[in-house]
Design a protein around this nucleic acid. Structure first.
Lengths: 207, 207
DNA sequence: TTGCCTGCTGAACGTTCATTCAGTAACTTG
DNA sequence: CAAGTTACTGAATGAACGTTCAGCAGGCAA
């Protein structure tokens, strides 16, 4: 996604802003820093984006576009998700692994966006949830998931459990000693979580 | 927790700062705003707390103290959690409902703290995780939870699923149409989630 | 009373930031 | 080539902020 040199200055500014925003939050990043990171003058940043808010909006839109690309591969090709290999959790976490390089700032940016209280974050969550509803419906229809009496809650439950991995990635890596969103980490995570989803976690009368 | 008038100015400043920080984040709140909300001069805020960072630290410590109070009731009285009534999820969400008034800024503050990247947030998560490990161990020993091959991951899984409710409360309320951390909302949430944890969510060969 | 804290005020200081702007270089269009 | 548009710079502006500080009021000890 980052080609560095063959991008226009406008795109370079956007990508550097994305990285800095993801790392420290938009409020803590100055236009001067972004300009320095993109190797241009502060004036040029505002020339292209009008204001700092305009730049934030542009970055939000860019990330939303990346999300749409990812979700499109799911909705277009049902066979790709959840019925597949032995390690499949049917999770968005895996989707990210496939789409995004390990050092990408996008996951961290999504995390900030979701918890910022901005409209862009709300919009993202709504689309994500709609995607989750479609996916769970499909998996139920395919006989992979049990039907639930409250499909909206079930879709939300599965979705936010998945999302928690993204939101708490750093903390989990800290206490567990491995990054659950790395290729190796997700295997260890899934090795315990898939059985939990399959058999339940309570003892007692499981059906 | 808020008595408004019988508190010292120092405590009023702390509580107002807590509310404003929870709502908009510490960076977006100025000392002047806090002073105005507490009906004192900006100078007094710094007289009591030395610097803005000093005030942030004081608020962090205050919230950490509230967390410790809550977790102490769990560790001191094992019977209180998870083996009880028909609606028990064994969740921290319920604990909050019991301890904290519905309009308290504390949940929102905890959310910010956990995702701020500050040391106080990391420390909070570690203690929370330690608590989760103790609790799951106990529930396994009591025959309520299945034993897991990877207890650390299982404890983390249950914990972050619970935490997701706190972190994504507003978004969930938006898409579901009810607040999953309200008294009524948590019942509807649990009504679908408890069976999911009991029987699993996959069809196929549940044991 | 005198002296000395503590709580508290409000003006002032210096810094940092987003934004504006006049001007230069380069590319495009006629 | 001429003219206009776009890309870009760097200095200047003005606002907002955290912090400092001189000073006032009141309680308390000697």
């Amino acid at each position: 996604m980052f080609s560095e040199d063959d991008l226009t200055a406008r795109a370079v500014i956007r990508d550097r802003a994305l990285g800095l925003f993801a790392e420290r939050g938009p409020d803590a990043v100055t236009i001067r820093e972004i300009a320095a990171a993109a190797d241009v003058s502060p004036g040029l940043v505002l020339h292209h984006y009008g204001s700092k808010q305009g730049l934030r909006d542009a970055v939000d839109a860019h990330v939303a576009g990346l999300f749409d690309q990812m979700s499109a591969t799911v909705t277009d090709d049902p066979a790709q998700l959840g019925d597949g290999g032995p390690q499949t959790v049917g999770s968005f976490a895996e989707l990210m692994l496939a789409f995004i390089p390990a050092d990408s700032p996008v996951p961290a940016y999504l995390r900030r966006l979701l918890l910022s209280g901005e409209d862009a974050g709300r919009e993202l969550f709504r689309r994500w949830f709609a995607l989750s509803e479609v996916m769970t419906d499909r998996l139920v229809a395919a006989g992979i998931l049990r039907a639930s009496a409250d499909p909206a809650v079930r879709a939300a439950f599965l979705m936010v459990n998945d999302l928690a991995l993204l939101l708490l990635r750093d903390h989990l890596a800290d206490v567990l000693g491995f990054d659950p969103l790395s290729a190796r980490g997700i295997r260890r995570w899934a090795a315990d979580v898939v059985p939990a989803y399959a058999e339940g976690v309570f003892r007692g009368e499981a059906r």
